[in-house]
Design a protein around this nucleic acid. Structure first.
Length: 803
RNA sequence: GCCGCGGUGCUGGAAUAGGUAGACAGGACGGACUUAAAAUCCGUUGGGCUUAGCUCGUGUGGGUUCGAUUCCCACCCGCGGCACCA
């Protein structure tokens, strides 16, 4: 009887599906465990082995937890709105709905033949109107609570996709989707006020069991910084320029003030600016720079002085010049800064270039640094600062700040790098925004009864490029009566971004057929939060930040009961191609799970993906390694089918329970590569003692191995004559009492170097060990005639003699 | 530039409350079976030397320790993220 995965895998998959064995009961007596995968975008090329690395890991956890008698929720669905399907429609005229449906059925089949134990009753699809009804509902709630607003402002624009983008979607000045250089464009935008949650998004990170890397990325992205706003009066104008600084202690060293080219002060004070033509042409030049140009000019700062203007430093009444320079960002802080060249690298560089004064006001406490060569940006004690001289930076910040505050020139202020989230896209394949624009009533939200507002069919999917979506061309859809006054009105034609549906999908699994609410409160309380969430690190500041924001909002309006959605997060490392390159269609190095399953079976694919290495690490695919794993599964098969109906020898029983312990420990630590190695070690050992193994040990082995290779183990379970499914067996418990005390192997070291190993039955105490070791011939060679200074005994392990 | 992670045989990797470095697998080499190949099975496999032994060895250089892949300091290299955030 040979191992034939093709035959047995299909057989069991059908049986399990028929018995709906993976269905999660909402309200059972068992403890719950919610294991979530980042749901896939149903792309036309299907999933590759990299996706499956994550899916297999969560599948193993799910099966392991089920055997430990948890009620496990392990659902899957489709994040199906997005550009590829829409671009395909533009090229072929085939509606995205049709493409999406086809791709889903493909990928679903890939998942089924891999033996992934999803609860298919809970499947969701973000493009299903019954689903996006609730995406729209959340949007309306955000609107109702003042967290969604419409505003015309310059946002990132992709000229190729012809749509606006969020900051998070622009990578190195390029569109994250298509790679085209992005520009800025002024358009009417729906914006979500994520900044209102900045502090909570930051603080609550501390309590999450997430990779440090991701938490750190989110912290940096939110970019909280505490400082002061300080007013500089502009001489003889009645106007002020307000700057933001975290280093108010360096205020005496301010040589000039810099405003962003976009500043309103330029048009307001144009009559007082002597070189206004020069200034305006600089402003014009800055405006036309692409993001990429701006980034590449970091090393060479440009700017122009506003001649005729002087700003007055409120701390000492000193007059300083005013510059416009595009190294100051209009979008951060007040859009203006005070320049302290002695203590800021950017100001230093700029001052050197334009020959501006550099005044040292902070000295390092330790070594003497020279301000001639570079800026000193650390804290220290103040000099040249009037009554504040000699104070240390921290106290000076308080003293100077408070003083100016009393005089009305300064306020404490917290700034964030995080910006509000531009939420509208000028594209077709997304959730329509459920708002109507009425001439009389202004913006009117639809009521819940009017949801879902379904996406109409169109003939042309091309983006218009005008800042309107293709929906704008469908008069019959756009022109409606105002829900409020009945007068003529127009629908909002923008759609929601790719990220909308994924912000809350994990909630819909809990109650995917509910027509009355987003999720039933009892079901929500039963299952939330997600106990384990697994996916790629590339979503660190996109999906993972957005969904935390929405979740906190839903918490605030009482729709969910937890403050955070995902308690424990783990990232999957990439599966690289054999050559260490990223797998991609264009390089032709993509490995499809289907072909591996076809050749070796799903269990081999599963075990290999776990055995490759630590699952959060990027590792190259190795065809030979797959064969090696397949060889191993064959060995298990051969061993199991030949096992006689008897009890194993004590040695084997002992080894088996050690295996239970090691495998269980490592699964708890989310380690999947080492358990596979333990199984191999066990099989190697048992192979030498084939006759000693009986049905008791094989049964335990199979149970332990079931999460990894469910088909193989289920088949062997039956072959061994058991009734019922192995999936429903209890996870083996390690019996310490059956584990034989190993012979003590005492490592004998001289001066920390291993010189010999000695075996003893049972333990050994200090005195006896010393005596035995002194008699040892090998050791005597090392210690004879030498003075023994010290002897260190590590109980049951090692003895070190220092000579 | 800043932040995070990492550097162990030919390759993927194992081992950290400091205690036998290289588990397990792949590859390579040798052998058995075979007319032959594949498959399977057995053996060898970190480097060096004067080879029953010794010695070097976990990116580099120091340090702490009886003992360091593990802890500390300085540096080098690789990967990922952020990118003028005042």
């Amino acid at each position: 009887m040979n191992y034939n995965p093709k035959e047995i895998e299909r057989k069991w998959q059908d049986k399990w599906e028929k018995e709906n064995i993976n269905h999660a009961e909402d309200f059972s007596d068992k403890q719950k465990y919610y294991v979530l995968d980042m749901f896939p975008y149903p792309s036309g090329v299907g999933l590759h082995v990299g996706h499956f690395k994550g899916y297999v890991a969560t599948d193993i956890v799910s099966r392991y937890k089920r055997m430990q008698n948890f009620e496990v929720l392990h659902p899957i669905g489709w994040d199906a709105f997005g550009l590829p399907a829409e671009n395909f429609a533009i090229k072929t005229g085939i509606h995205p709905e049709i493409t999406t449906e086809k791709n889903i059925s493909n990928i679903k089949e890939q998942m089924k033949i891999a033996g992934l134990s999803y609860d298919w009753d809970r499947e969701i699809n973000t493009t299903d109107p019954d689903y996006y009804k609730w995406t729209q509902w959340i949007f309306l709630k955000l609107y109702e609570n003042g967290l969604a607003y419409k505003k015309r402002l310059p946002i990132n624009w992709c000229p190729s996709c012809k749509t606006g983008l969020a900051n998070e979607e622009v990578v190195d000045g390029k569109c994250e989707r298509c790679g085209a250089e992005t520009t800025k464009k002024d358009i009417d935008q729906w914006i979500l006020r994520i900044t209102a949650y900045a502090d909570r998004l930051l603080e609550d990170l501390d309590n999450l069991d997430w990779p440090d890397k991701i938490k750190e990325m989110q912290r940096n992205w939110i970019g909280r910084s505490e400082g002061w706003e300080v007013d500089f009066e502009i001489k003889d104008s009645g106007k002020r320029v307000t700057v933001f600084t975290t280093r108010i202690d360096t205020l005496f060293g301010c040589s000039y003030v810099v405003i962003a080219p976009e500043s309103h002060l330029i048009p307001e004070l144009k009559d007082s600016i002597e070189n206004i033509d020069e200034v305006l042409s600089y402003v014009e030049r800055s405006k036309n720079k692409s993001d990429l140009e701006r980034i590449s000019e970091v090393k060479d700062k440009t700017g122009v002085e506003l001649k005729g203007l002087k700003a007055i430093n409120p701390i000492n009444g000193k007059e300083v010049s005013v510059f416009a320079a595009d190294y100051v960002l209009a979008s951060y802080g007040t859009g203006s800064v005070m320049a302290v060249p002695a203590h800021d690298e950017r100001d230093y560089e700029f001052a050197k270039k334009y020959d501006l004064p550099i005044t040292e006001v902070v000295k390092s406490k330790g070594n003497d640094s020279s301000i001639e060569e570079s800026a000193f940006t650390g804290d220290g004690f103040l000099v040249n600062s009037d009554i504040y001289s000699e104070m240390d930076s921290e106290n000076a910040r308080k003293a100077i700040g408070e003083n100016l505050k009393e005089e009305g020139f300064a306020r404490q202020k917290v700034n964030y790098k995080l910006h509000d989230w531009p939420f509208s896209r000028q594209r077709y394949w997304g959730e329509p925004i459920p708002i109507v624009h009425c001439g009389c009533c202004g913006m009117v939200p639809l009521s819940l009864d009017d949801l879902p507002l379904t996406l109409p069919h169109v003939d042309k999917y091309e983006p218009t490029g005008t800042g309107e979506s293709p929906l704008a061309a469908i008069d019959s859809w756009v022109n409606v009566k105002c829900p409020k006054c009945g007068g003529p009105a127009r629908r909002e034609t923008n759609t929601m971004p790719q990220w909308a549906g994924s912000c809350w999908y994990y909630l819909r699994y809990l109650d995917n057929k509910n027509e009355a609410s987003l999720v039933d409160a009892n079901k929500e309380k039963r299952w939330m939060p997600v106990d384990l969430y697994v996916g790629g690190a590339e979503h660190a500041v996109l999906h993972l930040l957005y969904s935390r924001f929405w979740h906190k909002f839903l918490f605030d309006i009482g729709a969910v009961s937890t403050k955070e959605p995902f308690q424990k997060l783990r990232n999957i490392g990439l599966v690289l191609a054999h050559d260490g390159q990223k797998m991609s269609k264009s390089k032709g190095n993509v490995i499809s799970p289907d072909s591996v399953i076809e050749e070796f079976g799903a269990d081999t694919l599963r075990v290999y993906e776990m055995f490759m290495g630590p699952f959060d690490q990027a590792i190259g695919w190795n065809e030979q390694g797959v064969k090696g794993v397949n060889r191993f599964l064959n060995r298990i098969w051969d061993l199991a089918v030949e096992t006689e109906n008897k009890i194993s020898s004590d040695d084997i029983i002992s080894e088996t329970h050690k295996l239970v312990k090691k495998v269980t420990n490592d699964l708890e630590r989310m380690k999947f590569n080492t358990p596979v190695a333990f199984f191999m070690e066990y099989i190697n050992l048992v192979y030498e003692k084939k006759k000693e193994i009986g049905i008791d040990s094989i049964s335990i082995l199979l149970k332990l191995f079931t999460p990894f290779a469910p088909h193989l183990c289920e088949e062997l379970w039956q072959v061994l004559g058991n009734d019922g499914s192995i999936l429903k067996q209890d996870w083996p418990v390690c019996r310490e009492d059956l584990m034989k005390q190993e012979k003590t192997i005492l490592i004998v070291q001289i001066n920390g170097k291993v010189r010999d190993k000695m075996e003893f039955d049972g333990g050994i105490d200090q005195e006896e060990a010393e005596r035995v070791v002194r008699e040892n011939e090998v050791i005597r060679k090392w210690i004879d005639g030498k003075e023994i200074k010290n002897i260190i005994l590590v109980k049951g392990k090692l003895i070190n003699i220092v000579v």
